[in-house]
């Protein structure tokens, strides 16, 4: 009873401290979310524009044709030029001469940013490098380019997931090579349920890479990309997680 005042004041101080800590943590998270939004290459409205502009052009069936064409090409990494040649060849075969990706500059923006990033990495690894001004020649993973193309794919979310899964199956086919189990059914199946049972599984690494590609092509919401750091004193701090971390967290939640 002699220390009642002290106990009371200590309790108040602790409550205030925890409130302050929580506010600082929330502010840090909100600031990071704003950063992610501000630095995004595309905003959600642009993505919507890209998708609607290609409403009649890039549907799931056309996408399947594109994948078939890339299966013929048989390369896991291609330049953007080669990639677009193949895509346009399929589009023109289906929709006639002159068909092209509408609002393609939005897709270009995402791909060029990736080429810059890869170019910088190459420059950094080859110190006295012939600085990559030949960005056009940089080869990017086919899975990344297809993830970028999926920005323009006009379809339901379920179909889009199918489409991306087929991309991973295709790439896995290249890896396994020898041509055998590559022949994953590339959809246009009237009974998707049957198809799903037939689809082979893909490696976890591929899934992580695909999530990373989706992140790099602005297809994940900012909130989902935020992960907690180990620093929680004096308040919790946050950072942007990569594909591996986001996949791990999702799998933990599923478990």
């Amino acid at each position: 009873l002699d220390n009642l005042g002290k106990i009371f004041l200590t309790t108040i101080a602790l409550v205030l401290l925890s409130l302050l800590r929580s506010t600082k943590g929330n502010n840090a998270r909100a600031a990071l979310r704003d950063d992610i939004e501000a630095s995004a290459l595309l905003d959600p409205l642009e993505i919507e524009d890209l998708r609607f502009a290609n409403e009649n052009l890039l549907t799931k069936s056309v996408w399947d044709e594109i994948l078939k064409e890339f299966r013929e090409v048989g390369r896991e990494r291609v330049t953007y030029g080669t990639f677009m040649n193949v895509v346009l060849r399929v589009l023109r075969r289906i929709h006639g001469e002159g068909a092209t990706i509408q609002c393609g500059h939005l897709m270009d923006r995402v791909v060029i940013a990736e080429m810059d990033r890869v170019g910088r990495e190459i420059d950094a690894s080859e110190k006295d490098g012939e600085s990559c001004d030949a960005t056009k020649e940089i080869e990017l993973p086919l899975s990344f380019l297809l993830a970028a193309l999926s920005l323009a794919l006009y379809s339901t979310v379920a179909d889009r997931i199918d489409a991306l899964y087929n991309v991973m199956v295709l790439i896995q086919g290249f890896n396994n090579d020898a041509g055998e189990s590559t022949t994953a059914p590339l959809s246009i199946d009237p009974e998707p349920e049957t198809l799903r049972k037939e689809l082979p599984s893909v490696s976890l690494v591929q899934v992580e890479q695909m999530i990373q590609h989706l992140q790099n092509t602005c297809q994940l919401v900012p909130d989902a990309q935020i992960v907690e750091t180990n620093a929680n004193v004096p308040y919790q701090t946050y950072r942007v997680g990569d594909g591996t971390e986001l996949t791990k967290r999702a799998r933990e939640a599923m478990a």
Binding site: V157, I161, S203, L204, R249, A250, M254
Partner: peptide, 23 residues
Amino acid sequence: SVVLEDFYAILKSRSVCAWGECY
């Protein structure tokens, strides 16, 4: 390894929330 259903669940989980659509 991951099958299509798992991939679907991962993309639609709150941790990934692709295209803003999550459970």
